[in-house]
Simulated assay, not measured.
Amino acid sequence: MADDAVASWPTGRLLSVAARLVEGSWERALAERGLTHAGLIALHLLVGGPQSQRALARGARVTDQTMSRTVDRLLRAGFVDRVVDGADRRRMLVTLTESGRAVHAEAVRAEREDPAVLGALVDYEAFRQQLVALVQALGPGGQAGPQ
């Protein structure tokens, strides 16, 4: 891709191509750490403390079955444990291990600082704020979103 040709593309095409490129680099960065997108989301939710699989599924906006597979992979990798809930011994909770806490922190750092993930991004926080505003404005319930 010639730089001058890319600079002439419509914004929609730039966003689409950038999204595919970032997703690919992010998937590689996560795979190097033994993670998937779903696994990282589960770890992120567990940073706040132990949760049931059902609560994790709701927080991640996925089915219970999908979260069950994700937790099973995280268990095999040593990133989480299942423990009996002290308040209700019939229920199991998913907890972060030290290894899970470390890999989560490393993935968060890589997202913000690793040039292999976001390439030439100059101001991560400003870019992130713009993405949040875009999704909020165009997504469901947003001013420009479907009514």
Results as ranks from 00 to 15, higher is better:
G139R: 01
R69Y: 11
A137N: 10
M92P: 00
G34H: 07
R82E: 05
E106D: 12
A120K: 13
A102F: 06
A42R: 01
R101G: 11
Q65F: 08
G59F: 04
R112Q: 12
A31S: 13
L121G: 02
A87K: 02
A7S: 09
R101W: 03
D88W: 01
G12F: 05
L74A: 10
R20L: 15
E32I: 07
G49I: 10
G145A: 15
G48V: 04
A7E: 12
T11P: 07
D64H: 12
R73G: 10
G34I: 04
E23D: 12
R20A: 12
S16N: 15
T97V: 08
W9C: 08
A144M: 07
E23M: 08
A137M: 04
E125M: 11
A7L: 09
G86Y: 02
G145W: 08
L134A: 11
M67W: 04
E113N: 09
L96K: 01
M1E: 15
Y124F: 09
G59E: 03
L30M: 01
R33K: 02
L134G: 06
D4V: 14
D81Y: 07
T11R: 11
G49N: 09
F127A: 15
T63C: 04
W9Q: 07
R109F: 02
R13I: 15
E113C: 05
L134T: 07
R58W: 12
G34R: 03
A137E: 10
P50S: 07
S8N: 05
E125Q: 12
E32F: 13
L93R: 09
M67V: 10
A38G: 13
G86H: 08
L21M: 14
I41T: 14
A87V: 07
L131A: 15
D123R: 13
H44I: 14
L118K: 02
G39W: 07
Q129C: 01
Q147N: 12
D3H: 11
G100A: 05
L96R: 06
V84H: 00
Q136E: 15
Q51E: 10
D64Q: 09
V83N: 02
G49M: 04
A77E: 13
H37N: 10
R76V: 13
R76Y: 12
G59P: 07
V71T: 11
V6E: 09
R69V: 08
R82D: 00
Q147D: 12
L138V: 01
R91M: 10
V122Y: 05
G49E: 09
L138E: 11
G141P: 06
Q143N: 09
A55I: 04
Q65N: 04
V47Q: 15
R90G: 10
R82G: 00
R101D: 10
V80H: 04
Y124M: 06
Y124S: 02
Q130H: 13
E106L: 03
W9L: 12
